[in-house]
Simulated scan of single mutants.
Amino acid sequence: MSTTTAPRPVPGFDDLERDWLRARGSVKWHRPGPRVLPAWVADMDFPVPAAVTAALRDAVDRRDLGYPDWPDGSPLRTAFARRMADRYGWAAAAERVREQTDLIQCLQLVLHLATGPGDAVAVQTPNYPPFLATLSTMGRRAVPVPMQDTDTGWHMDLAALDAAVARKHCKVLVLVNPHNPTGRVLTHGELEEIAAIARRHDLLVISDEIHAELTYAPHRHIPFASLSPDAARRTVTLTSATKAFNLAAIRCALTHYGPDRLLALRDAQPPDLYGTVSPLGVVATQAAWREGDAWQRELLTVLDRNRRRVHQVLHAQLPQVRHHLPEATYLAWIDTRPLGLGEPPVERVLKTGNVLLDGGSPFGPDADGFLRLNFATSHAVLEDVLAGVTQALAPPRNAS
């Protein structure tokens, strides 16, 4: 590990006890076992905002766990519309918002209503493995649109997207922006070109924007549905407070339906067929959006520091690997193929460095040889993760 001055510790973010992390039952630290450092699944290690804890505790202390009185939907519908207006200037309609348990269910329900077996769905690759697995399990034809690794970072090949949509007769584009796993944030110009392709080919756009609030300046998230009236009419937006506030287990996500027909189809379903959101999930999301912004600003300073540290160490100690500073998310996407390892890098890092990362074929075609590293942890844990990764991937000392 290269020598560096330790940063000023940030209380609540850098004082994590590893015994506490391992004692929790969540999969990130529990599954790998006591000898392995986990930097794989996309959970942050940090405690949730105090405002969220207080709101949940208050609901439990009041024994407020009965059936909620929400004749017109949960209060999150209005809260979502307000947050979109305040953050992005998007006049999202509260009456078009519906609650689900998580983002994967949101995607599956929209695909179920809007497509049938055999229908073609364009999707960026690499991509979030459960999204790709959903397309396979549901019998939809995934049409990969590979992200391009350039000297200036990861980019969508928009000409390839246009050609693939036309050639494969796609009905849907699943757009992940900010992008998991590359961390790319699409610009207004790129989004306008995608909107033109969607209009030209009459595509439904399912826009996963769950990482929107984890975007680093000067990059700026732009909701796809905010681009134009046409984009609004053909876009279904998926989001949740869970990524930006570390609330995965509350099981609460939101879908904003742009197409009238699709919203009518959704509302014509039996009301409980796809489950209902937990009132505690609503309480936690409200508290995060209402009182968690100061916590989130501090979070972003820590994540910004960590993403730069990952980039610095990789550049200094593993100069052959390719890595671009992510523009959003807390995930680093690392190309180890120039190392010529001869074995999957996830296995090498686990076996030699005692660090568990994600990567490889579950992220799509041509993802073998890549690693995804979650840097949402304390400075001390991140240093040990990076030490294990560089130890595992460094060439032998006698190598020429």
Rank of each mutant, 00 (worst) to 15 (best):
L371Y: 01
W20K: 11
T237Y: 09
T390E: 01
L158R: 14
P9R: 02
T152C: 06
P47C: 07
L262A: 05
T53L: 12
H219L: 00
H324P: 05
A93Q: 11
R266L: 09
K243H: 05
V185G: 05
D335H: 09
G258Q: 04
G12I: 11
P117V: 04
A231K: 02
L161W: 06
V123L: 15
P319N: 06
Y216A: 06
W40Q: 10
D368F: 05
D358F: 10
D15K: 12
T215Y: 02
I197N: 00
R82L: 13
L214N: 06
D335L: 07
L227G: 10
R251G: 02
A133V: 08
F363E: 02
V355T: 04
H324E: 01
L16K: 07
G388S: 05
T329W: 03
D202A: 14
D260P: 08
E291H: 15
A94T: 03
R96H: 14
L341C: 08
T125W: 08
P271S: 12
Y257T: 01
A264P: 13
T235R: 11
L393M: 02
I222H: 14
G116P: 01
R199K: 13
D14F: 07
P259S: 05
H315P: 01
P7F: 12
F375C: 03
A294L: 12
I210H: 09
D102E: 10
F80Q: 07
S207D: 06
H188M: 04
G342A: 05
A164S: 12
H155W: 06
D366P: 02
F46C: 05
A380E: 13
G116L: 05
F370T: 15
T352Q: 15
R261E: 15
Q124R: 09
A253D: 04
L318P: 01
V313C: 00
H211K: 10
F363R: 04
D64Q: 14
R220L: 06
A376H: 04
V389Q: 00
R251N: 14
T115K: 08
N374K: 05
P144C: 07
F131L: 14
R141K: 14
H201L: 06
T125C: 13
V97H: 03
W20P: 01
T352F: 04
T239A: 08
E192Y: 01
V321R: 03
E298A: 10
R372S: 14
E383N: 08
H169F: 03
L254P: 09
N374D: 12
M156V: 15
I334L: 15
I334M: 09
T235Q: 09
H323A: 03
